[in-house]
Nucleic acid binder design. Sequence first.
DNA 1: GCAAAAGTGTTCGAAATACACCCATGT
DNA 2: ACATGGGTGTATTTCGAACACTTTTGC
Lengths: 242, 242
Amino acid sequence: MKEATALIPQLTVDCIILGFHDNQLRVLLLRWKDTSFWSLPGGPVRQTESVDAAATRILRERTGLGAIYLQQFRVFGDEVRYSLEEVQEKLKHIFDPAIWYKRAISIGYYALVDYSKVTPLPDAYTDECRWWDIRDFPTLLFDHNHMVKLALEALRQQLSWQPVGNNLLPEPFTLPELQRLYETILGRSMDPRNFQRKMLSLGILERLETKRRGGAFRSPYLYRFIPEKYEAALKEGNLMIL
Amino acid sequence: MKEATALIPQLTVDCIILGFHDNQLRVLLLRWKDTSFWSLPGGPVRQTESVDAAATRILRERTGLGAIYLQQFRVFGDEVRYSLEEVQEKLKHIFDPAIWYKRAISIGYYALVDYSKVTPLPDAYTDECRWWDIRDFPTLLFDHNHMVKLALEALRQQLSWQPVGNNLLPEPFTLPELQRLYETILGRSMDPRNFQRKMLSLGILERLETKRRGGAFRSPYLYRFIPEKYEAALKEGNLMIL
DNA sequence: GCAAAAGTGTTCGAAATACACCCATGT
DNA sequence: ACATGGGTGTATTTCGAACACTTTTGC
């Protein structure tokens, strides 16, 4: 789709924005105006910004966040990525079908954000912007379901080098919280004793004085990442777990 | 740069074509006509082909190979990737400086090819196409040195999931040959006993009856990958070595 | 027979796995 | 007091690391 500012033709960015809440991975989706159709936040790249900057901009507009962890994971460049006619028909009350490119190449990014700091915000073309559970969200327009799937695969594969804990969990956090994050991403459960031993042995965590209060149960310890140690472990690719 | 066929504007593909010969990783480079300037093979994406197909086409044109292992590894999308003026000046006898896009986004691919099956072939704009040792090749035009560096990092990181042996080594091969391939990619040497034990324990290799002859030394056994087993191990990401 | 590279086995320590009970807290 | 989730130690097994000598071959 086209806009006033000068754009790079036929090139878009789509973002899989991931957050973690209630022990679940969530993805931020948009519902198009006066429809029940959902899709990923995305948009064109401007002539005056880098591709990464375009992704950052789109992300900032939907989440209100400034500094964000973004990772390019794939270019979607097939000649036919989805039914153009279908999309034109479904969104014709929003966009003149004539303005759609016959073909667009999309660069896929995943973003890891702190759920608690996000204020989901729809734009001029959408009525609603909200989090969905990654295991249960609607069928999306375009090839966006495929994109989410590949984003998750990329994330899993790159787990050892991605600052996952850092970006998805607000500090301070407890070890069970961190464990559930890993479990959710990897899709399997882990032994808490082994998880703790492994995590603590990496030497990247600092245990705080205070504990988390509130539940009707034993108060867990709070932890923070030690930034330098954390960075070092990431570079080594040491963060794969069990 | 522009051509007769309809192109996607401002979008190019660049290929880091890797081969293995004389126990060294090599990269295929082009020398521009009447210059001493080298760069990676690359080019625009046509409207009628997927991005992957564009990379495949470029690769086929330079190597003569049909089925090739190609892996997208990065989009180079900065607003300013290199000095446009410098390139226009250096290549002005080949291209009218006016035809250059002010900005182009490039999708980086690395390709793993069988060195022995490649016939390097220059195109209309280049005088020479040849292999260079990956540890010692000229400064390239554009941001191509950076691209090679990132391609190698991506390859190293993805080693466990990439069909490296499969594509870079002609079958049948010997275990020492395979070991030197891994050593070259990872940039460190390994113990031959440990390497063999690990490789053979994966159950993806078939030892052949015949041995390789020719050197003034003991004849090594020849091996072949067992395709189904090899595929399965790749999916699991089990191929990381020592 | 000699030079060059290939083949091979064992020991040791580290890390991964499996497993179950008690503790702290709020209601 | 009880229900809920958090914290912790040990034994076993597996895997990676280190290490050196003998064999084959062509010249």
